[in-house]
Each structure stands twice: as structure tokens, then as C-alpha cells.
Design a protein around this nucleic acid. Structure first.
Lengths: 221, 221
DNA sequence: GTACATTATGTCAGTCGCTGACATTCGTCA
DNA sequence: TGACGAATGTCAGCGACTGACATAATGTAC
């Protein structure tokens, strides 16, 4: 599994200057835990960006975050999950966006609008999403994880929402999954176009254009 | 990554009684090579079916095929690829099927008919496809491989064919990928329904029904 | 504030997928 | 037959990940 690793230009932003808010409600213990978690993500982002995903060792990352490798794996189940540490946030945001659409709205419109809320997420975490996309383009392991874990988790949210709206069982009626599959393909195209543009193009616009094509599918007869 | 491993009933067929044809044209050397390859696949199928994917070691498989572990990895790049050893056959068959559709046929019909040719493959290798599907349902590693490698390779064939038919660049026009995504979702549903039925339902029928829903997507507005 | 329970972390040894390097065997072909 | 090359075996090693146990920091009850 040989891999071409990315070489970032010196000007590129490497890490999200994350807010590091650390809910002041919680005690010192959970704050410290959150702190090491943040440190690990930052260390991973930096090393992945500078050396590439495959060339970076989990031991490297742990050392840079000044913790043991064992601690890294207590916070993240896999090396890939370290790169997509905010997966759950994005997924839940998508879920809420889907749930908040009016019930009388056409389903394709609901899906489209919700996917656009995902675009907002991309612009809010621009650097990180670009890094993830670039690493996915250069490392098969990351690419596979993105498809099989990240995107799949989004797809499930769409399937559940569409099935609920239609009032059908998604294991029997194929439409929820087919809609979700089409929508995910649209998002992938938008992501790819956005990535090759280096994040300069407007993700929202790209995503909207791709999603438009779903409704016109039947023209292909 | 804890995994529930499948327990097959004694009556279940474990291995494809593969033809083991070994092109008589070739010499003894390539015949022996093909033979060890077949042995490895058979050993893998048997152990995966009886012990589950994760619980089976590549060393186990190699020993059962009476070769060294190193030889296993000379024939197959990963443990997963051993389970999907015939991936290329299926992919190329899909490609040919897509290429053989008349140029004046509506695109959705071409895609649908080609996916049905994929259904023939499923019935031809019924036991193996069932085993793969069951293992994918029980092991995240297999499931991820199926999505990110196997199904993705099919998806690329559809994208290329549809883009060629439309005469567009699939990196710019989203329609080829969206069609492919919808078609792959349909196939996934059919596979799942077929699997839970234990392979008793007619895959062709399931697949056709799921593919039908693509054209009616715009009804969801 | 002292004592006890919890929890995050470190350390260490080990498994398993996978690879490079080198030696050996065996089919092929002149 | 003898030389060449392809397939395999052997061995050592890397890297992701895990279980077990010890330790230290934190939270809590009194």
C-alpha cells in the first residue's frame, strides 16, 4: 500500500486555532482530559499535515502531545479517528438540521437544505476539512475511513430522516437509501471540487449545484 | 473494535466448490501458482465461515493452505482482499455489461440492466456472496472494505460509463456520480434484503425493484 | 483535613497485519 | 544438462492496537 504523501506549502495553515473552551462547569479532571484530547488532535493535525498520514506514527503523535501512546488509544480508537475527532459534532448537527425542516416541505428540498448546513460546517472548520480532504486524496487508509465511517454516518442520518418523513421502513422501501446515496454522491463531488480549488471556491454553491442534479435524474430516463 | 462473529449452522455451505479449471494452456508453474491461490481462498472461506473474520489469523489461513504466511501476502495484499479475491472479475464483467448497452438506450435503463447482470454474478457465486455479506454484517473491517474498495470499484465503472455516454467530464458534471451513487444504494438494499433472507429471495427481483425507485426520485420533489 | 473511592495516565509485554532481505527450491527453456 | 528466473520459505522487524497492573491526581464523604 504505497502512498503519495502531501507536501504542504509553508504558507498553509496547519492547525485549527481551536477555541479550547473547556466547559468551565466541569471539574479540573474533565478539563484536563479535554486538554490532552485537544493536544492529541493538534499534534496529529500538525504531523499529518507536514509528514503525511501514513508516514506519521501514533508514537510520534503521542510524544508531540507529551503523553504515552497508550493514552492516545484511550482517547481515540484508531489513528484515523484522531483525524476525524469531531465526527460526532458534524453528524449530530446534520441530524438536527434534518429534524428541523418543516414537515410539509418536499423531501428533496429538506435534504438539500440540510446538506447545505453541512456546508456551513465546512466553512467554519475550513482548514481542518481541507486537511482531511487532502489526506484522503493521498492516503488510501484515510480515504477508506472517510467513506466507510464518516460519510456512512451521515448517510444513515439522511436515511433515517427520509424514512421517518415517508413513514416507511428503510429496510423495505428503497427510496430513503437511494435518496441518501444520491445526496452523498453530490456532497462528494462538491467536496472534491472544493478541495482541488484549495478551498477558494464557495462550498455552498458547489454543493447546491450538485444537489440540484438529483431532481433532474429522471430526465436521463 | 469488538466484533460479533457469525456462527454458521452445520448445514450451511462453506466454500464454493470452485471449478478449479486452471487453464491447461499454461505451464506447470502457473498452474501451481493458481492452485495455491485457490487453496488460500478456500482456506480463508472455511476459517472465516467457521470462526468469523476477526478471529481468524492470516497465519491460520496460511497453515491450512499449507504455505507460509509470507506466501499468502504475496498472493493477496490484505486479509480482506483474500475474502474478495474475485473482485476484478466482477468489476470487469460490470464494465463489459455497461459497454455493451446500445448507445441510444436511456441511460437509467442501461445502468439498471447492467446492475442486473451483476445480480447474475450473485446467483452464480451464491454461497461466496452470502458469506461475504454475512461477514460484512458481523465485522466492521469487512464492512468497511466492502464499501470503500469493492463497491467503490463498481461505482467508478458506472461513473465512467455514464460520463462517457453523456459526453461530460465527471469531475465537473455531477450527474454521472449522482446516478452511480443512487444505483449503488439500490444494490446495497437488494444485497441486504437478499442476505437477511438467507439467499432464498430472488436477487434479480430485489435489485430490479430497488433500481426502479431511482427514476421516481423526482416525485419526492 | 484526613481517608477512601474514582479516574486518567504510564509502563510493559504481547498479538496481529504486513514488509524487506536473503536463501532455496523448482519449473522452464536453450 | 545446465543456467536462468519465478515462486516459496525463513527470519527479523515495524506499526497499530490491547490487556494487565501500578501510580498519581482528582473528587468525595466524614
Amino acid at each position: 500500500m504505497t502512498t503519495v504523501e502531501p507536501r504542504l506549502e509553508p504558507g498553509d495553515v496547519l492547525v485549527d486555532p481551536a477555541p479550547r473552551v473547556s466547559d468551565p462547569e466541569a471539574g479540573r479532571r474533565s478539563r484536563k482530559k479535554q486538554r490532552t484530547r485537544d493536544d492529541l488532535i493538534a499534534a496529529g493535525d500538525y504531523l499529518f499535515a507536514t509528514q503525511g498520514f501514513d508516514a506519521t506514527t501514533t508514537t510520534d503523535i503521542a510524544e508531540r502531545a507529551d503523553v504515552s501512546q497508550r493514552t492516545l488509544f484511550r482517547h481515540f480508537p484508531t489513528k484515523e479517528s484522531l483525524l476525524y475527532g469531531d465526527l460526532d459534532d458534524t453528524r449530530l448537527q446534520l441530524r438536527e438540521s434534518l429534524a428541523s425542516r418543516p414537515a410539509d416541505e418536499p423531501i428533496l428540498v429538506s435534504v438539500r437544505e440540510s446538506m447545505l448546513s453541512l456546508a456551513e460546517d465546512f466553512e467554519r472548520h475550513r482548514d481542518r476539512r481541507l486537511l482531511q480532504a487532502r489526506l484522503a486524496a493521498s492516503s488510501p487508509a484515510v480515504s477508506a475511513y472517510s467513506r466507510a465511517v464518516v460519510q456512512f454516518s451521515w448517510e444513515r442520518e439522511i436515511i433515517a430522516a427520509v424514512a421517518a418523513r415517508l413513514g416507511v421502513d428503510p429496510l423495505k422501501d428503497p427510496r430513503p437509501e437511494v435518496v441518501a446515496g444520491a445526496a452523498m454522491s453530490a456532497v462528494r463531488i462538491a467536496m472534491r471540487q472544493w478541495t482541488v480549488s484549495g478551498g477558494t471556491l464557495d462550498f455552498m454553491t458547489l454543493n447546491a449545484a450538485a444537489l440540484e442534479s438529483i431532481a433532474s435524474l429522471s430526465d436521463l430516463g
